[in-house]
């Protein structure tokens, strides 16, 4: 039995390493001396180590701290509001006895099949709702309520909340909203955690809304800063207008700084991953069950 598993173990171990290796190169290059990087190129084993990139980020701290703050704020607000709206929409749709429920379910489902595309969406948000260069631009478009999540949650409610307890609570005099908050939600912690986690990761990783709806760099999330840095390595220095540190500051180590900011961006996910990976993996399998 054990002998047979050598080859599977070997292949899976190699695949796992392949998944991890790019991150190691990123981390190694962020600790590489700028001149060594330019002269000898990116390497897993830097010719000369240096902490300059991180020192530089530390000096330019305020830009990074603000971007981080915006990412955290957007993630918390978006996940909280999104989860509330999603569950309040999914639960009524899961009730077989709700008149016209199927019509509403179809309206939600249809948005997965057909959409107006970027142009009308962009024009509506920018010209009519004036969302450009506001914090709402990072929260609302596309991300807040996801009809796919709604359908997953609905099928969870259908198969996990017995009709009998709803009916008996109603007979005992509870109204429908109370039944939802006092009976249904406590029974639905797993799905709430799963969808919340997915929403949170979506918000943490989002750069698309910022790319489209933001020109004001003060509102940039950490992903937007990273996105801008790839084409404009001087971005940190140029956007830090209020700082007086620049005069005597160390010269910008452009290449390694970019890599260091990428490291700083993924660090929280890497730190938190061991704690939430169990739920994440479970969530993916829940999601594959069609609604």
């Amino acid at each position: 039995m054990k002998k047979r598993a050598i080859i599977p173990n070997l292949i899976l171990a190699l695949t796992s390493i392949l998944c991890l290796v790019p991150f190691l190169l990123l981390i190694a290059s962020s600790f590489t001396d700028e001149n060594a990087l330019v002269l000898y190129g990116y390497s897993f084993f830097p010719k000369k180590l240096s902490l300059k990139a991180y020192q530089y980020i530390w000096q330019q701290g305020i830009v990074i701290v603000r971007a981080y703050g915006i990412t955290v704020l957007v993630t918390i607000l978006g996940t909280g509001v999104g989860l509330t709206i999603t569950s309040m929409l999914s639960y009524p749709l899961s009730r077989k006895d709700l008149p016209f429920g199927k019509i509403f379910a179809f309206l939600v489902f249809f948005t997965m099949l057909f959409n107006g595309g970027l142009v009308p969406t962009y024009l509506m948000y920018v010209k009519y709702l004036h969302i450009k260069n506001t914090l709402l631009a990072l929260i609302v478009p596309g991300l807040l309520v996801n009809s796919f999540f709604c359908m997953i949650m609905r099928s969870y409610f259908i198969s996990n909340i017995p009709d009998a307890i709803i009916e008996s609570a109603y007979i005992d005099g509870a109204n429908e909203f109370k039944i939802f908050t006092k009976m249904v939600l406590p029974l639905s912690k797993p799905i709430m955690a799963t969808i919340g986690l997915f929403l949170g990761v979506n918000y943490w990783n989002d750069w698309y809304n910022g790319l489209i709806y933001l020109t004001e760099t003060k509102l940039f999330s950490i992903q937007n800063v990273l996105n801008r840095m790839i084409s404009d390595a001087q971005f940190l220095a140029s956007s830090n207008l209020g700082s007086t540190v620049n005069a005597g500051a160390i010269q910008l180590p452009a290449t390694s700084t970019r890599m260091a900011i990428a490291v700083v961006t993924i660090l929280p996910i890497f730190v938190a991953y061991p704690f939430f990976q169990k739920y994440f993996i479970k969530g993916i399998t829940i999601g594959s069950v069609k609604g």
Partner: peptide, 19 residues
């Protein structure tokens, strides 16, 4: 309870469809 979600889908999905 469904109103916030439906309004969101109306704005984010159905109005752009009409566009």
């Amino acid at each position: 309870m469904m109103i916030p979600g439906l309004i969101y889908l109306l704005i984010n999905n159905y109005v752009p469809m009409s566009g």
